[in-house]
Amino acid sequence: MAEIIIPGPQGRIEARYTEPPYPGAPIALILHPHPKAGGTMQDPITIMLYQLFEKHGFGVLRYNSRGVGRSQGAYDQGIGELEDAAYVLDYLENLSESPRFVWCAGYSFGAWITLQLLMRRPEIDGFLAISPPANHYDLSFLAPCPASGLIVAGDKDSIASPEDVERALTKVRVQKGQKVDRAKVAGANHFYQDSREELIAVCEAYLLRRLEEAENELRKEADEEAGVDVIVEEEDFED
């Protein structure tokens, strides 16, 4: 993991970056909680999400949004923070060599930014949204949600309860072939005190399932292409 400084829209953006382990490896962007509530890229859940993707062969980047840590600028009600996220995703993609998959993950306020970002970036293949504060922010912009992902909430969360999330998602549609899964962590509050390992286990199980499905799909496509080649060769031989 390296400390890097990104020249962002409002000046420097402080970040941590793990290079992809091989050319074409998948990449993931991790977004931290609300800056006004002490959220930084050093938040424990943000770090654990970063380590999850790093563990499974992703190039990963997390950063401090404007006005946080050594990042320049000032909090901008989510508007500038979304601009930062889009800019940093561009930067991450430019550091990578044709990434196989692009994922985004965020916690709390970072989950809300994650969900907005994927609406603007069709290259995002999957997402993890941890405790999006659906009672504070409208999620109706997910119309329709363009990528499959997982939304997780603690069943004792008074800030972003599973009921609030479900209520917000009742009006949300997804594009054909996509699915937004939901999961609850038993006994967990918004900060997942004493429940962080359980949270990451839920996220890891989902990530591994999605990666396996993607690999199976790629193998199927490769087999179909190989079958077409064989047919062509046989026809050429008969002629």
Score class of each variant (00 low, 15 high):
residue 195 S to R: 15
residue 130 I to M: 04
residue 72 Q to V: 04
residue 122 P to A: 15
residue 39 G to E: 00
residue 69 G to P: 09
residue 229 D to E: 15
residue 229 D to I: 11
residue 136 H to D: 15
residue 217 E to C: 08
residue 151 I to M: 07
residue 92 L to E: 10
residue 9 P to W: 02
residue 222 A to T: 15
residue 8 G to D: 04
residue 8 G to A: 06
residue 132 P to V: 01
residue 239 D to L: 15
residue 195 S to T: 06
residue 176 K to P: 05
residue 62 R to H: 11
residue 153 A to N: 15
residue 58 F to Y: 11
residue 26 P to S: 04
residue 171 K to W: 06
residue 158 S to D: 15
residue 237 F to P: 04
residue 89 L to H: 05
residue 134 A to K: 02
residue 43 D to I: 01
residue 184 K to C: 12
residue 80 G to H: 07
residue 13 I to G: 01
residue 162 P to W: 04
residue 195 S to M: 13
residue 236 D to Y: 14
residue 85 A to M: 10
residue 40 T to R: 00
residue 81 E to R: 05
residue 116 Q to R: 13
residue 195 S to K: 15
residue 193 Q to S: 08
residue 176 K to C: 09
residue 164 D to S: 14
residue 23 P to S: 11
residue 23 P to V: 08
residue 143 A to L: 07
residue 94 N to C: 10
residue 165 V to K: 02
residue 221 E to Y: 12
residue 3 E to C: 08
residue 6 I to R: 04
residue 70 R to F: 14
residue 91 Y to T: 05
residue 7 P to N: 14
residue 29 L to V: 10
residue 8 G to C: 09
residue 122 P to M: 07
residue 148 S to L: 08
residue 163 E to I: 14
residue 204 E to Y: 09
residue 51 Q to I: 11
residue 80 G to V: 07
residue 60 V to P: 02
residue 145 C to N: 04
residue 80 G to A: 07
residue 105 A to H: 01
residue 49 L to H: 04
residue 163 E to C: 07
residue 93 E to R: 15
residue 100 R to S: 14
residue 99 P to F: 05
residue 54 E to L: 11
residue 64 N to R: 05
residue 144 P to I: 05
residue 46 T to A: 11
residue 147 A to W: 01
residue 166 E to H: 13
residue 9 P to V: 12
residue 149 G to N: 02
residue 64 N to A: 06
residue 21 P to Y: 10
residue 87 Y to A: 14
residue 94 N to F: 06
residue 75 Y to P: 00
residue 151 I to D: 00
residue 137 Y to V: 06
residue 78 G to P: 01
residue 185 V to K: 08
residue 198 E to C: 02
residue 161 S to T: 08
residue 32 H to N: 04
residue 131 S to M: 03
